[in-house]
Design a protein around this nucleic acid. Structure first.
Lengths: 104, 104
DNA sequence: AGAATATGCAGGTAGATACCTGCATGTCAA
DNA sequence: TTGACATGCAGGTATCTACCTGCATATTCT
């Protein structure tokens, strides 16, 4: 897994919006997704390409259309590997700061 | 909460490394953190500034030193608001793709 | 076949980003 | 007070990024 690609892909609000749109209705075409975005089709294509490179979106060609599907696996892996560590130590990390602020 | 700041802050590998370093030992100074990074102190300062702006790191001055502490709260909020939605639908989202691939 | 539709590809540009160097400020300790 | 130490601040630059326009290709429908 390439954590950097996933994080970079998530860093852009348009790409998070695309994931949201696909979450509402999975398997949408490029044109359909563009209806909800305030930019040219070509720009949206680039964003979808980045999501695809990060393996967050998988595509299937159907005739002249290209269907886009969310792949939730990388998100899950990123969470497991990067976020849960901080979650586990959440209270103790806050405790460290609190103690310092109190002059510990 | 400013989700965009948090995601952008997490998009850089150096900044994720800084969070890791603070997770290992919370409350480190700038100089201490720099020992583990292959860049100038000034560059590291910028990264820490971005983490602080995203509220992922809180700082406390102690004399001429500046102590850095992780704040795990924004990470938790981002997870709750952005990741769990996909988690909940994980299996059904994969199901959509599988069905399309099988010619559904 | 020919028109309409859906997407692909090749540049071009303004602004953001991640580095850097150089110098200034503030704090501690002898 | 003075030297050493820790950090702050002001630019400067190369690269990346996100957008655009223009044109090409592929598929469907009449």
């Amino acid at each position: 897994m390439h954590a950097d690609d996933v994080f970079k892909a998530l860093a852009d609000p348009t790409r998070r919006r695309l994931l949201d749109l696909l979450c509402e209705q999975n398997g949408q075409t490029l044109g359909k997704l563009c209806e909800h975005l305030d930019m040219t089709r070509q720009s949206a294509t680039q964003h979808l390409g980045i999501l695809e490179a990060a393996n967050l979106v998988s595509t299937v060609r159907r005739g002249r259309e290209k269907l886009h599907f969310i792949n939730p696996v990388p998100l899950h892996e990123v969470y497991e590997r990067w976020v849960r560590k901080f979650e586990r130590q959440r209270l103790s990390l806050l405790h460290d700061l609190k103690q310092e602020l109190e002059g510990g």
